[in-house]
Design a protein around this nucleic acid. Structure first.
Lengths: 336, 336
DNA sequence: ATGAAAGCGCTAACAA
DNA sequence: TTGTTAGCGCTTTCAT
């Protein structure tokens, strides 16, 4: 069933059918109705390939993300896909893993599929090293590239992010103000966003005239799945004599690991130890007491990202950078 | 840069370039090399739309899932996407939500995009009601449909699932054999798979000559995000006087909620209460002690599903149904 | 082993 | 308001 069949049955030309299909105003209402009826009757659906070939667009955007099974990234994908579909765009998903060559390959794959844009979900797409970011610039030469949670200055690259620096600083200051003296900062990534969080932590201490101590900034080397590993990691620090009465983390899974460490050692939370997570994910609800966690307004970011994207595709001038501020959601793992 | 440009530069016809591109054997090695060199040199990539138009396939499969942010579904999507890409297929994702009309709409959207196949991820795509399953049959008329974790008899529909019935039965029997008398079964869905699990639980009791008591089979009405709600739900049952020393659940979030209930009431796990989860997700690691959970071999299922799909698309005869068996992963929340 | 040419189904410029 | 027609870039059949 093609546009030719419909035109024949309706006794009009294919151009008219095409006009009806595309909602052109230059069609007599009666003709429109006749065509529409036939289309309905035949259950005709235009061929997306042919349309794509003509318009050089299939109304599709590529979503690149390291790992769609990651709690945080999965939520982002969910929000983004829904918003895109509401705007008439389909989503082609590519899970790249964390290696650069594989990312380049995925990006090229998407570009060769002629997606209208590429969304990179997660701060891990931007490195601290110009060489490794070249693929983004190259990609932006073909289509607009949208970054979620990353910051990168380049024409045709649009960033939507949360001020992780300030959010972490605020949370740390809350803790300091509550009288916590020895705060352990637990993190697991040195992406752009990861470093921002760390800097926020450091700045909070400096603002309070507290010297930075290296042993109070610990990078957990394991994976996000390895909560037991986090527990053991903190346990080891504790057994080695590190004294801490507060833990600020860069992700909820670290906070849960810390919580399990406390439980295993019968350390009262929040009485003797206060814990703050990041992302406000479901993990923050997995312990008793629940974990205070920084919400970085993922849904708002995703909505905004899609809005910016659609604007860009419609040739509107859109802001290159949109920054949200995070917010500490206070729960039972803290006293303040 | 099109096939014409390449053919001109190489001094051959477009047909020859096309042959080279598609690995046809009928090309003289020297010609092939010449063309390949030019292609390489120009960084030429064939236009996917044009190819799609000619072949009526863009090597793309649609993935339908209710909610890509659900822990379990997200993992499935991750595995499936990777396997598909390794086989040269792209994935178009559609998150449908849990309502039937929206599912139909998404399915039609994918079909109108001429995907080569549709994968439905999650047991919730098949209802206990023929009328509501009609859209699957209709879809199967156009392309092969792959179901993950659901069972549906229909030509051109292929199922890959886990024997949830047996897995739940086995876990329940383990508990009974360990001397647990009053087992509460906590579930949250009445999909095909949900009912199978429930039946497995019931059958275990019957096998041990224990009468079924309605109040020991409780359906949590809230969402998967609402772990606090689960805790309160169990707490209410407890406060109302229900006595139980074991809880078998249909999903890990229910188990975590039960665990938090125990913690809040200072009930020793596994001393006074034993808990079993389902899915063996990260949530099973979120409490201290960790939660024993049934692993339904999601990755194996996804790999098999893609294998079956690729076989089908290559016109091989493939089994309509593949069933895996689950396995209880024993951790600290149980004594057996 | 290679080339010419006919589609694939649609959009859009141009003509009427 | 409607129709005619030339592409879009590729695959494939049929000649050679």
């Amino acid at each position: 069933m093609t546009i030719y069949d419909i035109s024949k049955k309706a006794g009009v030309s294919i151009a008219t059918v095409s006009r009806v299909l595309n909602g052109s105003s230059n069609v007599k209402p009666r003709t429109r109705k006749k065509v529409l009826d036939i289309i309905e009757q035949c259950g005709y659906k235009p061929n997306a390939f042919a349309r794509g070939l003509g318009l050089n667009s299939m109304k599709t955007v590529g979503i690149l993300c390291a790992d769609a099974s990651d709690l945080y990234l999965a939520k982002a994908i969910y929000y983004i896909e829904q918003n895109l579909r509401e705007n008439g765009y389909n989503s082609v998903l590519c899970c790249t893993g964390y290696e650069i060559p594989s990312r380049k390959k995925c990006l090229n794959l998407l570009l060769s599929q002629h997606v209208d844009s590429v969304i990179m979900v997660g701060s891990n797409f931007i490195m601290n090293n110009a060489e490794d970011n070249k693929y983004v610039i190259e990609g932006a030469a073909s289509v607009p590239i949208m970054l979620l949670n990353a910051d990168f200055d380049c024409p045709n690259v649009y960033c939507t992010l949360c001020d992780d620096y300030k959010a972490t600083q605020d949370a740390t200051e809350c803790m300091l103000d509550a009288g916590i003296k020895n705060i352990l900062y637990l993190y697991n990534s040195t992406t752009y966003s990861g470093l921002k969080k760390l800097a926020g932590f450091q700045n909070a201490l400096l603002t309070h005239d507290i010297p930075l101590r290296k042993e109070y900034q610990q990078c957990f080397p394991g994976s996000r799945e390895d909560i037991d590993g986090v527990r053991d990691f903190v346990d080891k620090l504790y057994k080695e004599g590190l004294k801490f009465d507060g833990i600020v983390t860069s992700e909820d899974f670290l906070a849960i690991g810390a919580m399990n460490f406390a439980k295993a050692n019968k350390i009262d939370v929040p009485g003797k130890l206060q814990i703050v997570g990041y992302n406000n994910s479901i993990l923050a609800h997995c312990s008793e007491p629940n974990i205070s966690s920084i919400d970085n307004r993922l849904e708002d970011m995703c909505i905004q990202l899609v809005k910016t994207l659609i604007g860009t595709l419609n040739q509107n001038e859109m802001p290159q950078k949109t920054i949200f501020s995070g917010e500490l959601i206070k729960r039972g793992s803290t006293n303040f």
